[in-house]
Design a protein around this nucleic acid. Structure first.
Lengths: 231, 231
DNA sequence: GGTTACATATTTGTCAACACTATTGAAAAC
DNA sequence: GTTTTCAATAGTGTTGACAAATATGTAACC
């Protein structure tokens, strides 16, 4: 259920290599959509996909069904499937939910893990990331935050939470990545993560949860301020 | 996406009435599963369903895809689909997430609505429900709590949150209903809801959120204590 | 009597072809 | 020259049938 695998370029690719499994199909499509390889508004034609994956149209159709249920595409009767376009209200709604779920992940991770386990992450968010920030290495910052997210979700040890967060994250991935371009956002995010990590190293789950929630809320505020540049 | 409609008995029902739409199919199946009309472990045969709904098997298959993605059924290759059986760990995981999401709904509802709007609910949770409790009318209690839930979710005005909560609730509906049988549980739940409502009438969103979170956590504790009777 | 092997039957997985709807282009009328 | 109507086309929605795999029941053998 948790879509953990990393799809994308790989086998199949039309060359009569027997089509990929159904889960692979939704994962590949999901990947293309969340990475804006298929930007919002793109039409998804069943025929071309069925030919590319060497499978029949009903299999594509089945994949469309779950993609639609996850809110990644919209299907208009007799008109076909289109990649969902995010509206401002929807982004704010996503942030509202992410605010409590990401915070929950941090709290559970802190509760369920000995504080020492966060030493390496804490180290990563020390000198290495500060150096990266000074030289404007945003990629490194994004990688660190991604790693933090991943570790927290794994440590939270809650498959349902992981699936829900994945689903939320899918719909805002590019947006969140664009957000680091907002002046001062990355620096602020780094400081906030350092605070969260410190609380985690002290085993203070409630504090870590509150700080993480503040972090997401502050990200949402940044989005609001710069929304016309970001959407 | 938010599965708000109330499916079940209705049109179609095999009598050559042209099959129901795809969304109807997953809603009908969803309804049967969450109400334990199809208890955990039931086998879902594509052929009988396609005949009952007067549709072809690929349509059933597509519905199975989203049901599987939502975690309501499991599909074993070449073996078919069975209704998911809940494990204790999974129930606890669901409670952990519900704890923060239901609380979020209450906070957002309080923030986005004038306090007077809760007068009728507050009234309902006053004398009427106390009387019902005295005469042991559990149905009335369940109806009140359901109404509270519904009102909070609508007032929260967040489609993503509504969809996630629906999905969580689907997987534990019968369990939660059984929970009111636990000695003292209903009474405790009533008092907790009264406290939450008071906070809402005072416009104290943060307090209402915390109280609602405590309410769910206390429900989880009750489940833990009586899990061998409930599962 | 119990166990194993085989044949049958049921059920899932997959596909290719058919029917219907909407869009787009051209042609004719104003 | 502009607008309206109609036909052709492309693409979705749906169906039924076919192939592969598993479960079941029976018979033979130990």
């Amino acid at each position: 259920m948790a879509t953990g695998s990393i799809p994308g370029k790989n086998r199949n690719s039309s060359a009569r290599g027997k089509g990929p499994s159904k889960e692979s199909i939704v994962d590949i499509l999901r990947h293309r959509i969340v990475e804006h390889e298929l930007p919002p508004g793109s039409k998804l034609r069943e025929a071309v996909l069925s030919e590319e994956f060497n499978v029949s149209r009903p299999r594509i159709r089945e994949a469309f069904g779950v993609l639609e249920d996850r809110g990644l595409i919209e299907r208009i009767p007799n008109r076909g499937a289109v990649v969902t376009r995010l509206e401002v209200d929807e982004v704010l709604a996503l942030f509202e939910v992410r605010e409590v779920l990401e915070a929950l992940a941090v709290r559970l991770a802190t509760e369920k893990t000995p504080p020492e386990a966060w030493a390496d992450l804490d180290e990563l968010f020390g000198k290495p990331i500060e150096d990266a920030m000074e030289r404007g290495d945003l990629d490194f910052y994004v990688d660190c935050v991604t790693e933090f997210r991943h570790r927290a979700i794994v440590a939270a040890n809650n498959p349902i939470l992981a699936a829900q967060l994945d689903s939320l994250y899918d719909r805002t991935r590019v947006l969140i990545r664009r957000l680091v371009l907002v002046p001062g956002r990355a620096l602020k995010g780094m400081r906030q993560h350092q605070e969260v990590l410190q609380a985690m190293r002290e085993g203070n789950a409630e504090l870590a949860e509150q700080l993480k929630q503040k972090n997401i809320r502050s990200a949402r505020d940044s989005f609001c301020e710069y929304k016309k540049y970001l959407l």
